[in-house]
């Protein structure tokens, strides 16, 4: 008798998690499924639930331009990877400074690192553009990378601050008294433990950069072409099937890139059996 209420609670809890799960699946899978259908759709007018006319026009169009597109992907991936790499490197150092050291103006530095969270890119883009023109960085890949970095660094710093705080200075102190230099202590002890966080920060920065449209357009001036720059006009012009085909490719590439990152990170910490928060 006594077990019954407990069972009921358990059941209800399962139902709630099930509902949440289903909602998540719908929120992610449904749009993707619609997108997939759209790539082979010619006409899909309201209020029909299923397209009236199918065609491979969009895919054909894209595959005919495959050479151009391959270049586009390559440059997009390289730019975003560079941004992510820089973001992780700078983020790691900034996080260490903010978490492990005391210095005057620490609060201000922290505020500045997360400021881009609060101010939308459109607001500071003009300032960035004017500065970059003066510095000769406008219309260059370097300029675009730095501009993307402004948006992705806050994510990198925030994530790595949590990771650095969790690992702390304790293990490095131990490594130091066991004979390691400051550099060795970081690279042999802290870094391998931080790998999972670094991977998250890397992916986050990558995706922020990869999907950046406005800043790329403004700073790149149309000279620096990324995948987003080419894709957005299709979305805006209402050429849905082509836009969806681009979106699907975007999705596939992102997934593939993340899978590769994960593999690399895995291999890197293969022997180390990372146990975070220990």
């Amino acid at each position: 008798m006594r077990e019954e209420p407990e069972k009921a609670v358990k059941k209800r809890r399962f139902m709630i998690t099930d509902i949440i799960l289903i909602m998540f699946v719908l929120a992610i899978i449904l749009p993707v499924a619609v997108m997939l259908v759209w790539t082979v759709t010619e006409r899909w007018a309201w209020p029909d639930l299923w397209p009236q006319v199918f065609s491979l026009r969009a895919l054909d169009g894209i595959f005919q331009r495959s050479e151009v597109l391959t270049k586009l992907f390559a440059s997009s991936i390289i730019i975003s990877s560079a941004v992510a790499l820089l973001s992780v490197a700078i983020g790691t150092m900034t996080a260490r400074a903010l978490v492990l050291y005391e210095f005057p103006g620490k609060g201000l530095v922290y505020f500045l690192t997360v400021l881009p969270f609060m101010v939308p890119a459109t607001v500071f883009a003009m300032g960035v553009q004017i500065t970059f023109i003066k510095l000769g960085l406008n219309n260059t890949v370097a300029g675009v990378v730095i501009a993307h970095l402004i948006c992705s660094l806050p994510y990198g710093v925030r994530l790595l601050m949590d990771g650095t705080a969790a690992v702390g200075a304790r293990l490095e102190e131990q490594a130091r008294v066991l004979g390691a230099s400051a550099g060795q202590a970081f690279f042999r002890v802290t870094l391998p433990i931080l790998i999972p966080v670094i991977l998250s920060a890397f992916c986050m920065s990558y995706i922020v950069s990869f999907s950046q449209y406005f800043l790329t357009l403004l700073i790149g001036g149309g000279q620096v072409k990324t995948f987003t720059i080419v894709m957005v006009p299709y979305l805006q012009s209402g050429d849905r099937n082509i836009a969806c085909a681009y979106s699907v490719i975007f999705l596939c590439i992102t997934l593939a890139v993340f899978a590769i990152f994960e593999k690399i990170a895995d291999r890197w910490s293969r022997n180390t059996d990372t146990a975070f928060y220990t």
Binding site: R176, I193, A275
Partner: peptide, 22 residues
């Protein structure tokens, strides 16, 4: 003189074993 050059080793209260190594 840096800690690693002093020849002094501490065993801490919280042991500080490296969790990612056997």
């Amino acid at each position: 003189i840096q800690p690693q050059k002093r020849g002094t080793v501490i065993v801490f209260q919280d042991l500080r074993l490296f969790p990612h190594m056997t």
